[in-house]
Nucleic acid binder design. Structure first.
Ligand SMILES: [Mn+2]
Ligand SMILES: [Mn+2]
Ligand SMILES: [Mn+2]
Ligand SMILES: [Mn+2]
Lengths: 219, 219
DNA sequence: TTATATTTTTAGATTAGACTAAAAATAAAA
DNA sequence: TTTTATTTTTAGTCTAATCTAAAAATATAA
């Protein structure tokens, strides 16, 4: 149906639309998929002709409903495969992204239907990201960045914003994973750093860490 | 490591070397991967430069040890994925080949190691074809074509030579699958057709069928 | 508002892989 | 052993996806 490159562009643009809240620039796309802006212009013109996005010269792009549908389906496949790799093959959560980047392009509706069933129709992937259902509907949960919660509040970790192997390994070292309870003991106004409690341990984390961890507040 | 096209050529050449018992011609490759002979010449020259096969103009090609290693690894992946699709996702044996053609190109040693373990290190795929181990070693079994066995002998089906969906569906209709006992009740010298017994049923099969079914003779 | 900087697009080149048409080598038939 | 047929290779073209360099548009600063 679509080429590997086309699928990767659509997925990247979809993610950028959410991060940037609106129109996505040529440079933003180029940076995100590690290519040159001139290459992006070419591809974006091709995708516009195929009605997967709208494009006005110098004005950036926006996915059409059809483009979104394609992107969401790739994301669905990516996240289902990540669940498979962690739940069934016992990969660790910092090892699965690269492999899922390949698996997400396998073309077979039936395969995904069956994989989903085999995995028990999971709602979230190993990084806490929601898995769209077959109609593209995402389960919404109200989660907050750890950096947004107040002193003495407590939450349970439900996801990571950044999901590089390096960050995930840092979290492992600190014994933080999906489901871990985190209590904010102190918060430094100046630099946003925090003292938090995880299990019996209390330690310092920088703002960078706090704004890449999603938590659900607990009373 | 290798491109999709390169992998497909190596795999096709490997299979042809076995079918044709020796040197593989340009035309044979072209037919097998459904491309033009001129395209094959190009690719074969490229693979020769990479030392994956030896090539003499107008003389056909032969895989090097390295070329064989690559080909066998792809076949290993293909067959392991087929087992996964049938055993875990409950696909039928006539539905898995096309999907495995895609999955066999996923690049990750670790993935295959874990998949193999998850599946219980199977020795055969759903069509009865042997799965090479991680060193490329194939489990050899003495099996015969049904067409080669004599009247009143009996065997158990251990594999199919042809594994197109059409042929597999024919076998389903006749209630023949891996493990099925087959007894030869009659054999027509003229055209090689047979009367066989499968379970309680007795029926006629043509030579074409008999020479695409592998059996292991039982006393 | 004019000058400068940044972003984006165009023009032209490159690579992998495939194709067609024609030439060259080899095999088969007369 | 010529002639004819088949197989294989070469030469040249095409498309997808990328790149560099330069031009054009837009944004920012003086
Ligand atoms: Mn991922
Ligand atoms: Mn993920
Ligand atoms: Mn197969
Ligand atoms: Mn098979």
């Amino acid at each position: 149906m679509f080429t590997l490159a086309e699928e990767n562009y659509l997925k990247a643009i979809f993610h950028l639309e959410h991060e940037l809240q609106g129109e996505v620039s040529t440079n933003a796309i180029a940076e995100s998929i590690e290519t040159k802006p001139s290459s992006v212009t070419d591809m974006v013109q091709k995708l516009a002709e195929k009605k997967l996005l709208t494009y006005k010269r110098y004005k950036g792009v926006q996915l059409t409903a059809e483009g979104k549908k394609v992107a969401i389906n790739i994301i669905r496949k990516h996240r289902l495969w990540e669940v498979f790799l962690v739940e069934k093959l016992n990969f660790h959560w910092d090892e699965v992204h690269e492999i899922a980047e390949q698996l997400e392009h396998i073309q077979s509706e039936e395969l995904i239907t069956r994989l989903d069933k085999f995995l028990g129709s999971p709602d979230f992937d190993p990084h806490g990201d929601p898995i769209p259902d077959k109609h593209g509907v995402l389960k919404r949960t109200e989660k907050k960045l750890l950096s947004e919660i107040e002193k003495n509040q407590q939450g349970v970790c439900v996801g990571v914003k950044e999901s590089s192997a390096e960050f995930l390994q840092y979290l492992d070292k600190k014994k933080i994973s999906i489901g871990t309870k985190i209590k904010v003991l102190g918060k430094e106004f100046f630099d946003g750093s925090m003292i938090i409690q995880v299990g019996n341990e209390q330690f310092f984390i920088s703002h960078i860490i706090a704004e890449n961890l999603y938590v659900q507040i607990q009373e």
